[in-house]
Design a protein around this nucleic acid. Sequence first.
DNA 1: TAAGATTGACAAATCAATCTTT
DNA 2: AAAGATTGATTTGTCAATCTTA
Lengths: 165, 165
Amino acid sequence: MAEQPDKTNAAPRAYYDELDIDVGMFPVMWSAMTVGHLLATDLDRVCRPHGLSIADANVMGAIRFVQESKPPRAADLALTLRVSNAVLSTRVAKLEGKGLLLRIPDPTDKRAFSLKLTKTGEEMILAVLSGIGKRARFVRSYKRLSEQDQQSLMRILTELQNRME
Amino acid sequence: MAEQPDKTNAAPRAYYDELDIDVGMFPVMWSAMTVGHLLATDLDRVCRPHGLSIADANVMGAIRFVQESKPPRAADLALTLRVSNAVLSTRVAKLEGKGLLLRIPDPTDKRAFSLKLTKTGEEMILAVLSGIGKRARFVRSYKRLSEQDQQSLMRILTELQNRME
DNA sequence: TAAGATTGACAAATCAATCTTT
DNA sequence: AAAGATTGATTTGTCAATCTTA
């Protein structure tokens, strides 16, 4: 996986060809993983002063956006966030302990809970989202791309995401 | 952070505007994080049958590519892989224990070690890289993009990466 | 039988502290 | 004082097992 782009000269490429290794794929995979990692680190840095991790902010942000229609159930949220029920359960317990969200028993299904932000949680996530818009390195970097590149990136990433899941 | 793209209709957007929250940025951040996560999971799945994690494969792959010129030192590798010395130290110890790489004392600096794959390690990483090329979902998804989109994605991701680090 | 949720065991990453060498 | 490397404490995520309800 990890290589320097400028190392892919003719000689090693022929070598890998013999072994049936598609070296040309590695730079783009490396970039995608690196950007994902830098982004997560970047957002985490912005969230920390609020006492939240980016994982916490994802949970609360997802609830915030969805709850405009209807408070989401925990299992649905786990699916949206692509984490296991176990992980979500732990995060929710922590956030509930901090008074940022509520676990509301689902009246139609005794197994299930709906999740809802408290007033404090609501204010917290809005502050964090605002902070991300203002202080995230990714946002600044992205906005310096050409309008066309911004649209291309969004479109291609969405396409890749749909195909991979 | 986490929202459904189709939720960004006019009413909530105005609401967030008042709070000075740039909602338009969130879908692209969400996609970038998701693709990064899916890619890591995807590659990890391919690596597991060989008894390696994707993190292990990154270490070995980086050594493999660089060592054609000169075995890299641990600190340089940590920089390349964007992990702390502490993390690299742990991974290296594990891989050395499995007989996949060697820690060679640097003759010019008594603090430092150079890292080199063993014969077994070399064979292992080449098998893993070959497996990634053949079985990774990302590779199949990426190759179904148009030639132009493949190039755009690579170019834009590289640009973002350079600006963020 | 399967789905929603939770718990505990284990693996991995981060951070601070430490040791040696420069 | 600073850099290379390592260790231990804390946190976080993954996995398997469990409990309750559908």
